[in-house]
Amino acid sequence: MQFLSYLINGISLGSVYALIALGYTMVYGIAKMLNFAHGDVIMIGSYVVFFTFGTSGMNPILSIVLSMVVCTVLGVVIERVAYRPLREAPSLAVLITAIGVSYLLQQVAQLTWSSNPKSFISVISGIPFLQPLSLFGGQLTISAETIVTIVVCVVIMVALIWFVNNTSAGHAMLAVSEDRGAAQLMGVNVNATISLTFAIGSALAAVAGALLCSSYPTLQPTTGAMPGIKAFVAAVFGGIGSIPGAFLGGILLGIIENLSKAYISTQLSDAIVFLVLIVVLIVKPTGLLGKKVNVKV
């Protein structure tokens, strides 16, 4: 029974990783860059929820929507200001810039809100009809946060896959991710498509932030960094560039992390997560669902 509880909590944590990983994987697939500032967008989103819902008592749903709007704008602005001028630059320059943006966001957050941890009030607790689920005559209790996190993640996943495969904008994303030049020749506006990708990724980051901080209620300027890195691991684990891969990688990573916390060592759990990444990269460099890239001449 305990195992089941660990497993479910692992899936829930993994769902958050999956949501964040989607941002990494979509941006990588379409803009061919690693946006290491993605984790910090989550942190900004969480602060928005903290101040609007936690401090001012705004409606929790409204607060998350507001946070999504703020993150979307932030993501698009970051891309426009920091990454777009480097579109033709070597990928190393873009990578360094992304790390720079990440520190910038953390430092700005620290200056604005100080580095003192704030205790985050679960957004789920603000929605009265959501109650913990008790199973097997009370032997297994699943918190409302856990359930909501998993459900939200699955719904977003399904919606996103539908969007990519069934809308014109989604097709444009697929085309740009395969061949930017050829997509342009089809009439796809590459800059607009990349902006859209950042917008979607950042909106999902806002949701992930609110869910993450509802389950793990400490908020500080570095809150986004570790989940960001782990979600990146999840994206690579599942096969970077692949949307179902991000989902699978995220869930598996969450389960591995939670089970190693429970059965091996709390301190070592992060090390185990990164060990998994190393093993996967050795055994299957393209990740679980990653496609082999054929370079044709």
Partner: peptide, 16 residues
């Protein structure tokens, strides 16, 4: 677009 089907490729052609 090698990951897309023939049909989807043609559909992309009609994008505009």
């Amino acid at each position: 677009f090698s990951g897309l089907t023939v049909q989807q490729n043609l559909q992309m052609g009609a994008y505009v």
